[in-house]
Design a protein around this nucleic acid. Structure first.
Length: 365
RNA sequence: GCACGGGUGGCCGAGUGGCUAAUGGCGUCAGACUGUAAAUCUGAUCUCUUCGGAGUACGGCGGUUCGAAUCCGUCCCCGUGCA
């Protein structure tokens, strides 16, 4: 049962399994089995930071075919607090989502909160962006938090630096991330929850290789590529993704965190990435932008005022089948909440369809 | 008819002699957004311009003043009260 680790002392999740079922070049199609169901990869995970994919319901997410969603442990720790989620019976019951859930640790939030934090080798001190209260996270306390929340996959606490960073800064954060990953691995206690390590190293190939090797040596159920799309150009990001995929073991899922644009997804899948998450489709939707094959369509623009055609003639989602650009433009101008809902539905549909077509292409050989 | 109050840029609304092409807000136009402190944020928004400026603007007309959205006269319009 479960995956056998490369190292005898490696802790694994006994109820997680990952199988690569087809490859095309470096791209892979796989099946990821988790406590709450199976996930066909490559997969896009809609972001539901606060236990909600903003603007749409869990029922709608199910209809869209979302296989796994992402929550954020850091945000759920602040509100409503782990005790309430526990009392509800865990993150799945709390939000009534029966399929798999991955929780991000909060490493990225600590990174983006900039002035409100202080990172030491021991952990990270930060002030709550909600009420200013002071908190301290360690690799151990974050694992404890995530084991309390109960997602299928937990991410370790990592140290993220903004690009561009110097080699020294990137190395420091990367080695700290490795040390923290080791502590998280030592501390984890649930064998029904997968834990993923995170590769760092900024835009330096040598650091990415070192990070991937060190993290793999610790042994995790899957491996994430972190610290990308934080200020660098796509042309700088893609080689890093490719390098990481080259070093990471083929038999474990690879997750590119926080990425990205449709182009980013295609490129990264081609390099061998299996999992993605990104706020773009949902955030752009709330900002009036529809993602299409032809690129982003800003429906707030006046040119759509009398355009009674659909957002995307090729799209089969209800938003495109039932409503016009002119109507969506009108809803956006009036700040009607339905605009956010319809566009979120469309954008998630676009992302999930894109991933399904990329998978089908790999399956076809 | 009389007495007060008021008429400011697409709208609302500050401003009561020069620092005012005129604070704000709304609207409008555009841009940004990649492990969500984000249904958010940023910029532009009188006209023309060789980007140095120039012109026209605070109900109309006239006046005072070196200088007026700001003071005076008069006319028009709106609100409230009294006849």
């Amino acid at each position: 049962m479960g995956n056998e680790g490369l190292y005898s002392d490696e802790k694994v999740c006994s109820s997680m399994k990952f199988e690569v079922v087809a490859t095309k070049g470096k791209a892979r199609a796989g099946v990821l089995t988790l406590p709450h169901g199976t996930v066909e990869t490559p997969v896009f995970m809609p972001v539901g930071t606060l236990a909600t994919v903003k603007a749409i319901t869990q029922r709608e997410l199910g209809e869209l075919g979302a296989q796994i969603i992402l929550n954020n442990a850091f945000h759920l720790y602040l509100r409503p607090g782990v005790e309430i989620v526990k009392a509800a019976g865990g993150v799945h019951r709390f939000q009534n989502w029966k399929r798999p859930i991955l929780t991000d640790s909060g490493g990225f939030q600590v990174f983006s909160l900039a002035k409100l934090r202080k990172i030491t080798d021991d952990g990270v001190h930060f002030q709550s962006p909600v009420d200013g209260s002071k908190h301290f996270f360690t690799p151990e306390s974050v694992i404890e938090l995530e084991e309390g929340l109960g997602p299928d996959i937990a991410m370790v606490l990592d140290d993220v630096v903004a690009n561009p960073a110097t080699h020294e800064q990137a190395a420091l954060a990367m080695r700290r991330s490795v040390a923290w990953a080791q502590r998280a691995a030592n501390y984890r206690s649930r064998d029904d929850q997968a834990v993923f390590g995170i590769v760092q190293g900024g835009l330096y190939e040598d650091l990415r290789i070192e990070s991937a090797q060190s993290t793999v040596q610790i042994g995790f159920d899957g491996y994430a590529i972190g610290g990308l799309s934080v200020g660098e150009k796509p042309e700088e990001m893609y080689p890093m993704v490719d390098t990481c995929c080259r070093v990471l073991p083929a038999e474990k899922p690879r997750y590119l965190m926080g990425v990205g644009t449709p182009r980013d997804l295609r490129e990264a899948v081609a390099s061998g990435v299996d999992m993605f998450d990104c706020v773009l489709p949902t955030r752009l939707a709330r900002h009036g932008v529809a993602v299409t094959e032809e690129g982003n369509l800003n429906l707030v623009n006046a040119r759509h005022k009398t355009d009674f055609g659909p957002v995307d003639v090729h799209c089969e989602c209800p938003t495109c089948r039932e409503y016009s650009r002119a109507y969506l433009h009108h809803l956006i101008k009036c700040r009607e909440i339905l605009a956010s809902r319809l566009l979120t539905y469309h954008n998630i549909h676009f992302y999930l369809s894109l991933m399904r077509s990329l998978r089908a292409d790999i399956m076809a050989g």
